[in-house]
Design a protein around this nucleic acid. Sequence first.
RNA 1: CGAGGUGUAGCGUAGUCCGGUCAGCGCACCUGCUUUGGGAGCAGGGGGUCGCAGGUUCGAAUCCUGCCACCUCGACCA
Length: 490
Amino acid sequence: MSKGVTPKSKDYARWYTDVITKAEMADYGPVKGTMVIRPYGFGVWESIKESFDKRFKETGHVNAYFPLFIPKSFLSKEADHIEGFAKECAVVTHSRLKSSPDGEGVVVDPDSKLEEEIIVRPTSETVIWSMYKKWINSYRDLPILINQWANVVRWEMRTRLFLRTSEFLWQEGHTAHATEQEAREESKQMLDIYQEVLEEVLAIPVLTGLKSEAERFAGAVDTYCIEAMMGDKKALQAGTSHYLGQNFAKAFDVKFQTENNKEELVYATSWGVSTRLVGALIMVHGDDKGLRLPPKVAPVQIVIIPIIKNENSMAEVEKFLKPFLAELKEIGIRFKLDDRQNISPGFKFNEWEMKGAPIRVEVGPRDMESGTIFCARRDTGEKTPYKIESAASTMSQLLEEIQKNMFNQAFEFREKNTFSTDSYAEFKNLIEKGGFIRCGWDGNPDSEAKIKEETKATIRCILLDEKIKEKNCIYSGNPTKHEVIFARAY
RNA sequence: CGAGGUGUAGCGUAGUCCGGUCAGCGCACCUGCUUUGGGAGCAGGGGGUCGCAGGUUCGAAUCCUGCCACCUCGACCA
């Protein structure tokens, strides 16, 4: 591992990839746009996944798995949906390879051409609704509350580790309901869960809102979203929850009989978050020393670094630490004793700062003599010695404090960089400097498009708690219809 | 797909204009000894079809031709 990362202020994009590769979160895959999630990065994803999965199950959802391959014909059943995804689909056309005639390598065997080409799922609405048609007959079969953890493929032209890769891991919930109201409540409920996990687990404050028509999911009636501010003041869509109305029920002819023996189309929702959240975590909390992980997702919450000198040995340090480590284990704290030999403590300090471990504990002759452990916080850099007898419970409190502090830091950063204005000139100026702008919008897609063209800023969301202060649209001067957040986005 | 650029060890690079002990350096890696409270030191060692294929030449990383790959910027995006 070479020293340091490119400073954030110098080149944010480079800082981001430096942190990922040097913290061993991920690496580039051999096919362009693909990513290998390394064990450390995958550990973070697993924590995130568990937090969501637990909440999904608590709200009555169950997990299932649908196929990776989708018949091409399915994609064309919902007009908006196909339009949204057509340009980024991986297509399977053949099923065999054979030795190349010139004797070198292999070629696609033209005789193996498929009757119907197969699409690698960019999202699973179509396969899932084709199955729901089979499974739903009566109102007694509803609701269906299924989630799946899966990989999907979107052949993006431009990729970035975690933020946009050709293949990514995500969770997609697909629910079917008897009434519009129930479906709408479901999509709102899932949005609330997203907000809760982002804020309480990832320590990332989010704004919740509705997407404008231009930004809406292909095939949705309404798209709700959570939006977060990254360290460079750009916005990142961190999760979406869609109310799909009866669009997919119509496309796949999914009807049910009501209590009164009437035939009706099913109402749907879908909602998802992806490995993109790992990218958000890095960009919201990272600094020039590397990653800073909130304790709740950190694979290693406490790293313990022994200082071995001539006058002590590893065995002595282990003996000194034994009761403390046993207690940590009992409380359920994820810790690691970094007992690698021949690597200097200084090197380990830097490495674990790069990897974002929330607390570092140092134990050497001085500590063993005084019966303390020396503790450094990754979030503030603060260093304090604690009595070893009571250290385990102190650690547990400290982790909670770090979790809260990281949320507060991110929250303050966002607030400091969120502006309100009714002047378009000022708007342009502010966008250039970066940040979120809260302003009025006349609801006209043309105003939105013009703003995007002129400033590269898009409507991130129509605020759910909108309070229309500015009377006029930032662009047209016409009466305001919605209070929105504008920003440049990833 | 349009415009630029780059390919030399795992990574980062020198050398390319001007062909000739040029295949070198740093990091990483391996072995040994000494070290270990903020990226250890010394000694020794391994690793390269210089992106690929042709051509020019006594001789090519270097010149010529073709191809391939990747990067940056635009149109698309969880």
